[in-house]
Amino acid sequence: MILDKHWRVLTVGDGDLSFSHALHLLMSNGHVTASTYDSEQTIRDKYKYHALELLAKENVPYFAEFDVKNPQAWQRLAPKKYDLAIFQFPLIPAFSSHKAFAESELTVNTLNRALLRQFLDNAYRFALDPNGPMLCYITSKDVKPYCEWDLEGTLTKHAQMQYLGQLPFNIDQFPGYKIRNVDRDKHVKDTSGITYVFSAKSNPKISAQLTTPEYLGDNHCSICRAGPFHSEADKLAHQNAKKHKTMQKHQQAWLDYLHGYKNSHL
């Protein structure tokens, strides 16, 4: 993960806060602000081990019950003071008991994309300093369902924040960080994580350190991460395959959502 120790960094949705604490140890004092979707009590009830006391001892600012979808949550922060906002391994699970899923007519694929889009838009609108690099990092897994959210493409359609590139996530950079399962006191092994980098600026020095995957190039299907196709027959066979048709449905549902979202938010 590309970091400058002088950047002012906001973390969101940080499960047990172990990432925020590990990040704090890498940065200059006072340059990290942590937040969680859960309340403090929920974190204490959910996780046997957490970093609440460690952050308090080291005077790291912390905001509980911080919902990235809610503009009022962002307005609790000092306005436009951050250089970077980080969302590690976000996921709305397809549990019928999960409020966001149970109360929505949207598919879980669209709900997850909407969560990430609102993170990017709200970070731009409320948190990122226009005089800084204006960066957002989303670290995600290179497996289903995460790889089906088109983070490199239509996630930022009509957005101020745009995809610059990506790089592998190295958990060894953050000693003590445990990647948590959603709603369970269990951490998951380090699957192939990728940090996707977004900014409202061109940031050539940052972009020079990033890569873009081959499947974004010509003769590929970016939404399926497939290709290159060696012939028209090869391409047609892919387009007629079940996977592609499923991804087309996800994509159309997302574009339909964006149409209404753009009109009401942007």
Rank of each mutant, 00 (worst) to 15 (best):
P130A: 08
T156G: 00
E152G: 00
W149I: 01
T156M: 05
P133G: 06
P168R: 02
P79C: 03
D172T: 15
K141T: 08
Y124T: 09
Y163S: 09
Q72T: 12
Y82I: 00
Y137F: 13
V108E: 05
Y47F: 09
N109Q: 12
V68D: 09
E103P: 04
Q162M: 11
Q72D: 15
F126L: 03
I86D: 13
L151P: 10
T156N: 01
A100I: 12
Y124D: 13
A159R: 05
P145M: 09
L135R: 15
Q166A: 13
P71N: 01
F89I: 10
A73R: 08
V68Y: 08
N170R: 15
T139L: 00
V60S: 02
G132I: 06
Y62V: 15
A85E: 03
P71R: 01
L128Y: 04
N109D: 13
D83W: 00
L151M: 12
V60E: 02
L91C: 10
D121T: 05
Q75I: 07
E65A: 08
P175I: 03
L135Q: 13
S96L: 03
V108R: 00
F95C: 05
I171A: 14
H98Q: 09
L155H: 12
T110I: 13
P93T: 13
H98K: 00
T139W: 00
Y82Q: 01
K144V: 10
P168S: 07
E105T: 11
Q166C: 14
A159I: 07
E148W: 05
L151Q: 05
Y146R: 05
S104P: 08
T154Y: 11
L106G: 07
K99R: 14
H158W: 00
H50T: 00
P61W: 07
P79K: 12
L116T: 03
L167T: 09
V143L: 14
N112W: 02
L151S: 08
S140L: 07
